[in-house]
Design a binder for these strands. Structure first.
Lengths: 230, 230
DNA sequence: CCCCTCCTTTGAACGCGTTCAACTTGGTGG
DNA sequence: CCACCAAGTTGAACGCGTTCAAAGGAGGGG
């Protein structure tokens, strides 16, 4: 259940195992896309992968574990798509907007079962929680991407703020994801609108931190975030 | 599944039905508290309530629906507990802190299965989502509570900001809940710390909106929030 | 060539959420 | 008093996630 012990990772120990594992993951992703999460049964996944039901469980501890692959996949695709935007954007707002929009683009094919995604990810004990140790690699990659957004930009802000900015922007991105999950407009029109409208605002807020009166508050926010990370 | 049609509400149509429904809800809450959500079976709930399995489903569309009762319960208890704090707090910070701390107090007994709560609530299609129409009453009650926090306080801010403040504070409370769900410290020490540290900050930020340079940004935030509500 | 060990694979079996067709009950109009 | 109808109630049956004891291989010592 919700034990705190390290999860037994059913990682393959040989080439043969690796192939089987990959076959199962591939079958799962295909079926999830075709029918959605609920209508995809473990039996169907096993059958398409050409293995027995029990064997699927040898490699993936649960049906939910099959979702992790999407996580990683989106993360990788997002980084690639964002790079394209970052290559020709020099302003902070432009870079942030490009990066967030890239995410919306990349994630679109998965939106129809993103709710299930999210549901699973929301459970604190789940390895799929964005805050979990298991998600650390993907999370750090996302934070690193936000660091690139900041680094290549024309941004003049206090060092304290700048240091925490990537992580704060990642949090903002989680907010966008939250909105996106609930967004049923075609092509995620409303999420794109949110990004378009929120980015200039974030840009403005970040720059405001140079104001004497605001800077103190900003430093407090940074201190608070730091204290929470522990 | 995720239809957009109105959910058939299995509300009791007679006194007899009402009693049965209440018995089931009571049994479920007791069992959830005793054993947690996962280990409580629908069969056990039905048995304790003295009804058949199928009958439980006549009143509650799914096991998850049994959770809604907790939602309402916490909301009611929270309002009562917050009133106590609001009765003798006159500053905005004091009132906000008292209200948020009251929530942490009230919710504590349910923390050990709050993850399941949250998991269910996170799914957009779920009636338990805090953004769903079904949750509107509880949500509105919470926003109203925040309105009371603001109204009784010594707060001088632009009218635009003040108008949206209750809803924004409710959102902030959702943030606290998110943190709380992930908080495994004893007595939710860390969540309390978060409240204690974040409240003065919020207080300060809200008051900053009177600064000429900040006010414009604040108005934009308000406009953004308004545009998203649609 | 055999046996031992460890990884891998199997499918039957289990538990639980959920559905449903049939049955009971209680009240109402004739 | 009866027939009728809707509300309420029942438990068997179904589907699916998950578990597990047992069986297959594959390599390596003896």
């Amino acid at each position: 259940m919700a034990t705190l012990t390290t999860v037994t990772v059913p990682v393959p120990r040989s080439d043969k195992g690796e192939a089987t594992r990959a076959a199962i993951a591939t079958a799962a992703q295909a079926l999830f896309l075709e029918r959605g999460y609920d209508k995809t049964t473990m039996r169907a996944v096993a059958e398409r992968a050409g293995v027995s039901l029990g064997n699927a469980y040898y490699y993936f501890g649960s049906k939910e574990h099959l979702i992790q692959a999407f996580y990683d996949r989106i993360q990788v695709e997002h980084t690639a798509a964002a790079e394209a935007a970052l290559a020709h954007e020099t302003t902070f707002a432009g870079r942030l907007r490009g990066t967030l929009t890239a995410w919306v683009d990349v994630a679109e094919p998965y939106h129809h079962f993103a709710g299930k995604f999210f549901k699973v990810a929301a459970e604190p004990a789940s390895p799929l929680s964005p805050f979990s140790p298991e998600s650390a690699p993907a999370r750090e990659a996302s934070v690193a991407l936000m660091a690139r957004v900041v680094d290549g930009a024309d941004l003049k802000v206090p060092a304290t703020v700048r240091g925490e900015l990537p992580e704060l922007l990642w949090l903002a991105q989680m907010g966008v994801v939250l909105f996106w999950v609930h967004d049923s407009s075609e092509g995620r029109r409303r999420t794109r609108q949110l990004v378009d409208r929120a980015v200039p605002l974030v840009d403005r807020l970040v720059r405001l931190t140079r104001l004497p009166g605001v800077r103190g508050a900003a430093d407090d926010i940074v201190a608070l975030v730091r204290s929470l990370r522990a």
